[in-house]
């Protein structure tokens, strides 16, 4: 199936077919990473700018490796080094980068919707690498890809997302992605960060981790985001950990072959006990290595065809 999008901004706007095209393309990209020479000439002559205006190690490095494996020219920006500290607007910064020949802009921004503003204002392709508490499409695609590999498919699986749903962009993207591919999605956490209105998206809401774990195939643990004010929503980390932290005993309630995921970085001992983080049931490092293949697929698909 042809991929006609110039931008990848959210899973909410992608169709089931488009998501599957990205996942299938990533399968082929995975092979490139297994070679001795991990490089193909597909994006030769294309300039990709990583405009990361919020701290990130995993996502930025993963995008950069993906870009280099496809032979693109890569330019990295972070907020502290850029003219944004001098007061330049985001759109002006991006227009300047475009004038220098940037074909694809990968953007991470603390404001929800920033990539959409950019996509409207510039001709380059825009890939959302996480915007505020809105969406994190590449992370959700990685989760779908990893689960599809382990379970053979997504349809009919019971997927549980645990934690700070309100502030998590990974949660939103995962909810859209898993629902579109036919999974049943449950969310659980303290009422203050698991809003009732999420029911409108088609998910089931729980407030007890034990109850929500019954019959579950996949558990996605979210990070307690101290920097995004998670802590204002519950009394203490210890209390959170007692009720919503995942450990071996609680995991026994889920299906025997349950898979545990975490988008990283992990707060060991808070949302995830160390024994779970190191357990073969958890695929956290698979998620990281699959991330390169998914991002190669995203970069490749937005540059194919007659889009620029």
């Amino acid at each position: 199936m042809a991929f006609n999008r110039k931008n990848i901004l959210s899973l909410n706007e992608l169709t089931q077919g488009e998501i599957e095209t990205i996942l299938d393309t990533a399968e082929s990209m995975k092979e490139v990473s297994s070679r001795d020479v991990k490089k193909v000439p597909a994006l030769k002559g294309i300039t990709v700018v990583n405009l990361f205006l919020e701290p990130s190690t995993r996502t930025r490095s993963s995008f950069e490796i993906a870009e280099k494996r496809l032979s693109a020219d890569v330019l990295n920006f972070s907020s502290s080094q850029s003219s944004i500290v001098k007061g330049e607007s985001l759109v002006d910064t991006a227009k300047n980068l475009e004038a220098m020949g940037a074909t694809i802009i990968v953007i991470r921004h603390s404001m929800s919707g920033a990539p959409f503003v950019l996509a409207r204002e510039i001709n380059s392709s825009v890939i959302n690498a996480g915007d505020g508490s809105h969406e994190h499409p590449s992370q959700a695609l990685i989760d779908l890809f990893t689960i599809r590999q382990i379970k053979g498919g997504i349809k009919g699986l019971n997927v549980l997302i645990v934690g700070d749903i309100l502030n998590s962009r990974v949660a939103r993207s995962d909810i859209f992605g898993f629902l579109k591919l036919g999974a049943n999605v449950r969310i659980v956490g303290p009422g203050s960060i698991v809003p009732k209105y999420f029911e409108d998206l088609g998910v089931q809401i729980f407030y007890s981790l034990e109850e929500s774990l019954v019959d579950v195939d996949v558990v996605i643990m979210l990070r307690v985001q101290a920097e995004r004010k998670s802590l204002e929503f519950f009394p203490s980390l210890r209390e959170y950990s007692k009720f919503y932290g995942l450990n071996k005993d609680k995991l026994k309630i889920a299906k025997k072959d349950v898979t545990v995921m975490h988008p990283g970085p992990i707060n060991r001992g808070v949302e995830l006990s160390s024994e779970i983080a190191n357990d073969p049931k958890s695929v956290i490092l698979d998620q990281v290595s699959n991330g390169i293949a998914i991002r190669m697929a995203m970069l490749y698909l937005v540059s194919t065809g007659d889009k620029h």
Partner: peptide, 18 residues
């Protein structure tokens, strides 16, 4: 991934496994 008509090919074939 090694084609030279990358930028103007509209009908893009599905990537297959090597």
């Amino acid at each position: 991934l090694y084609r030279d008509d990358f930028k103007n090919n509209k009908a893009w074939p599905q990537l297959q496994k090597t």
